[in-house]
Design a protein around this nucleic acid. Sequence first.
DNA 1: TGTCTATGTTGACGATTGTCGAATCAAATG
DNA 2: CATTTGATTCGACAATCGTCAACATAGACA
Lengths: 124, 124
Amino acid sequence: MSNTEVLPLLEPEAPQAVAPCCPPLTERPLSAEEAERTARMFKALADPVRLRLFSAVASYAGGEACVCDISDVGVSQPTVSHHLKKLREAGLLTSERRGTWVYYRVDPAVLAAMGRLLSTDSAA
Amino acid sequence: MSNTEVLPLLEPEAPQAVAPCCPPLTERPLSAEEAERTARMFKALADPVRLRLFSAVASYAGGEACVCDISDVGVSQPTVSHHLKKLREAGLLTSERRGTWVYYRVDPAVLAAMGRLLSTDSAA
DNA sequence: TGTCTATGTTGACGATTGTCGAATCAAATG
DNA sequence: CATTTGATTCGACAATCGTCAACATAGACA
């Protein structure tokens, strides 16, 4: 019960910054390690339900959305929670509890980093 | 045995053009069908080996590469072929046999389409 | 305290995926 | 032809993934 707010817990979920990760896929062959890190990001968006959840949060007014606002994607509530966790672990979303509800918002830096991976021009 | 080359077979591999597919993820919530199609593209790049193969082809001089040039990614040759097929089916790569070797090249339109999905500005 | 609502976690299940060895196909060359 | 080399297909296997029902947790409120 005593919710001691002492320890910062140095990253409870290993958001593993993906932003300054890897060069555009067209620049040079990815190394094994780079490919591993990059695949982790794409994997997070390689599911229809996660894409809908992510898109719902990303396009929501104010840049954030409560779970209750976006959980209408045709799967059970535990499944929604499971997918949101995966998006969090991939560093694509962050969550914050405010009172009754939990709000999710996108990390623009990570989104931009992924966009750069697929860019054809060299406008890094 | 009689390899009759009569039927064009109208798309042997369903390249399913992904280019004019879906709006940026931040624009509006994706529909179920849009999410399904988009996920298919991300899934193609959601594997380290496929990422390395794709990156190797995309960055190769001349825009195309023979399988023999890129198959040094730490897995067996059948596995390489398997992943290249997946990339082909996703519409990300095209292949062409010229004599002894098979050459792969990227489809820039598809790559650009994926980039747009992750764009934050509205410069469609 | 107790109850209600909103999310998250656990455990289990079937489905999909990545991998390889063996067999097969395709082109070149002897 | 037969052989060699490059590439794909087939068949099987372990590992991962998406899903749900059941349970647990966190606030709000009476």
